[in-house]
Computed example of a mutant assay.
Amino acid sequence: MFANTRDGHASPEQQARRRFLQASSALGLTGLAPGLATAQANWPSKAVRFVVPFAPGGSSEIVARSTAAELSTTLGQSVFVDNKPGAAGNIAMAEVARSEDQHTIILGHIGTLAVNPYIFDKLPYDANKDFKPVSLLAKVPSLYVVHPDVPAKNLTEFIAYAKSKPGKLSYGSAGNGSAGHLAFEYLKMTSGFFMLHVPYRGTGPMLTDLLSGRLDASAIGAAAIIPFIKSGKVRCIATGSAKRLPQLPDVPTVAEQGFPGFEMTQWYGMLAPANMTAPHLAKLSAETMKAVRAPAAQERLRGDAAEAIGGTPEQFAQFIAAEQERWKKVIARANIKPD
């Protein structure tokens, strides 16, 4: 069955099935494997709901829709995106945690998985117990942008301008604890300036105020903001990526502008409710890796400056744990609180 696994060249779906059969054997379930394999083959039996815990218009929706488009083909059933914003993603996370239909999944990200557990005294979900990691989907660099009326052409000028007007400038984010909030607080901590934070209910409504000039600046995922940079509606003063982006070759990174080692990327992954069965999870993981790594998906995400990742549930679980440790320290130092 796995003729090519010994030489390390098994396909993702073969690897996922092998792990499942090994786990079944360890639990004494080998005799049930044929029945479970049938359950895996028969799933999904209806459309799959892919919940995005934020308003439309941000990087989260771009990553989710790109993945859903490919996954609809690989799974043989429609995968539709359902935006459910509110309470820093807590409403959607809590709803999906309680879902029992085996056909509901959710987009997890830096805020709901690595930030909310440390800024809320009590959450309606447990990030580590109520969900099963499926796969890390994509990473999106944060871009630091200002409204064209702000007299700063680069990060150095912007920091000097902000320091000359302490408390008079404001930046917006998709909400307290959102990726944009973290990105800007991380920059503030690193460079020592102060600006007022204005949280919104999603990237879309925040962008409306940034474009109109009611906000001075923001840190936004590249996928959502590059079109507005290209059209001149906002000015990009730095990228949070480790190296310059091909889409913005003339914009230096934060690290290049005096802060070596600085890097800020948003990340997005797929989660399933903890009650999803082993065969369903194994199939979803294998098909999601296939979908994320499909040439069409990679090209689509690359066009929006997003990096397609893919990976196993175990790899995603390890990544989440590392990010929780990283941002726990930043949150404590910046004293980030929920709305």
Rank of each mutant, 00 (worst) to 15 (best):
F194P: 01
M276F: 09
L271W: 06
T112R: 07
A69I: 03
A291I: 05
A238S: 05
P313N: 12
A322G: 04
L36C: 09
F262T: 05
V79I: 02
E157S: 09
M270C: 08
K84M: 05
V330D: 06
S99A: 14
F2I: 02
R244S: 11
D209R: 08
S142N: 07
A10F: 10
T38C: 01
L196K: 14
T156A: 14
P44N: 14
F194H: 09
P279R: 00
S178E: 08
K153C: 01
A10S: 11
M93Q: 13
F194L: 06
S178I: 08
R302N: 06
P56Y: 01
L71H: 10
L210F: 14
A272L: 15
A294Q: 08
M93N: 07
F54H: 07
F120R: 04
A222P: 06
G180V: 00
A278F: 08
A305L: 11
V96Q: 04
V63G: 04
T253C: 06
W267Q: 10
T265S: 12
A278H: 02
A317Q: 07
G221P: 12
A47N: 12
F80W: 10
G269I: 07
L27N: 05
S59Q: 05
E263V: 11
V254G: 05
D101K: 00
G89Q: 05
A33E: 14
M264H: 14
S191T: 03
P249Y: 00
R293V: 02
M264T: 04
A16S: 12
S170V: 09
G175M: 00
L182W: 13
D130C: 06
A94C: 09
T104P: 11
K153V: 03
A152K: 12
S66K: 10
N42H: 03
R201E: 11
G269Y: 03
A41Y: 13
G35H: 04
F2Y: 14
P117A: 10
G58S: 02
E307W: 08
N275P: 14
K243L: 05
F184W: 13
I229Q: 01
F20M: 15
D250T: 12
A114W: 08
I220A: 01
A286M: 04
S45F: 05
S59K: 02
I336M: 14
L169S: 04
R244Y: 08
E263W: 03
I220D: 06
P279Y: 08
R49K: 15
E256G: 05
L21E: 14
I220F: 01
D209K: 12
W327N: 13
M264N: 15
G175R: 00
R293F: 04
N4K: 12
L155M: 10
Y186T: 11
P85V: 07
Y268Q: 15
D126C: 02
K243N: 12
V146P: 07
G192N: 02
A37M: 01
A152E: 13
A294C: 00
K230I: 08
T203P: 02
A3R: 03
R293S: 11
L207I: 00
P205C: 00
F50T: 05
D304F: 03
K329P: 01
G311L: 11
F131K: 07
S66C: 07
S24R: 11
K84L: 09
S285W: 02
Q324T: 04
G269D: 12
Q15M: 13
L248S: 12
A321F: 10
I105N: 07
P56R: 13
F131T: 05
G175F: 00
S59R: 01
